[in-house]
């Protein structure tokens, strides 16, 4: 099987996910409702009551972190749909095809990534409507780092699918259990630069910490607050993200294939 065929299969898998997504009105409605609720909540409650003395715009700060985490989460959710597809028998059709197992999983990540990018667009619209300053530099900075968010989310989804391959309910719960602490301990919506003790350790253990940190570093470059919100050097963030994503991707794929071959 040539590289061209592998790429073709990968594209077909991603395109199928997009096709299904396009027909799912529930997800589309959710994608509009979620940023309104989330950004409205943070802007209204935290922004007005706790963030008055901050040297940066809180809504803009939360937007960058949330977009990073949500890109990862949406991709993760799409990849873990492999477990539902295993339950319905559809993965049989995919896994007996003469295609590399890694291409199949990469196709799921690609499809999830495209969906995540579409789903994230309303965040910018809602943030703009709530008055967050959205410069070209900020948005392009977020988009530059977005592929790493998609890769990390996809790889985490692959690992969860590999661990919970036999239970769609368990994998759904696992996505929530994994993403909820990432959202808060990574500094996506609440700064964590002064976290110490156990919380400090947990912050460092969250892969999303390095994602959000890198996204802020790139998004805030050239601004007055650049550097003050930074936890690690960009090279450290990048290195951790690539190593963790690769490890999760390989381990998750091998685990899932093992389940599939031992039905």
């Amino acid at each position: 099987m040539s590289a061209r065929n592998e790429a073709n299969a990968l594209l077909a898998i991603a395109a199928r996910d997009l096709l299904i997504f396009r027909r799912d009105w529930g997800i589309l409605v959710f994608s509009l409702f979620f940023p309104i609720a989330f950004l409205g909540l943070f802007d209204g409650l935290i922004g007005q009551n706790l963030a008055a003395g901050l040297p940066f715009n809180f809504l803009q700060f939360a937007l960058v972190g949330l977009v990073g985490c949500m890109l990862a989460q949406y991709t993760m959710m799409n990849v873990t749909s492999l477990v539902q597809e295993r339950e319905t028998g559809f993965t049989q059709e995919i896994f007996v095809a003469p295609v590399s197992r890694f291409s199949i999983v990469a196709g799921k990540i690609l499809g999830g990534s495209a969906m995540a990018l579409l789903l994230i667009a309303p965040f910018f619209v809602v943030a703009g409507a709530f008055g967050a300053p959205l410069s070209v530099g900020l948005v392009s900075g977020i988009l530059w780092v977005a592929p790493l968010a998609l890769l990390l989310g996809g790889a985490m989804g692959v690992l969860l699918s590999g661990i919970f391959a036999t239970s769609p309910k368990a994998v759904d719960q696992a996505v929530i259990l994994v993403m909820f602490p990432q959202m808060f301990l990574s500094g996506a919506v609440i700064p964590v630069s002064h976290s110490t003790g156990l919380l400090g350790v947990l912050v460092r253990l969250m892969p999303a910490t390095y994602l959000v940190d890198l996204m802020r570093t790139v998004a805030y470059r050239g601004t007055a607050v650049y550097g003050s919100l930074q936890l690690y050097a960009p090279g450290v963030d990048l290195g951790v993200l690539l190593v963790v994503s690769a490890a999760f991707f390989v381990a998750g794929t091998l685990l899932f294939v093992q389940w599939e071959k031992n039905r």
Binding site: R4, A9, A12, R16, L19, I20, T88, A97, P98
Partner: peptide, 17 residues
């Protein structure tokens, strides 16, 4: 089941190159 018959076939044809 969420795809049409033809979409299922197109998916298969692409998977098999």
């Amino acid at each position: 089941l969420r795809l049409t018959a033809e979409e299922n076939l197109r998916f298969h044809a692409s998977l098999y190159g």
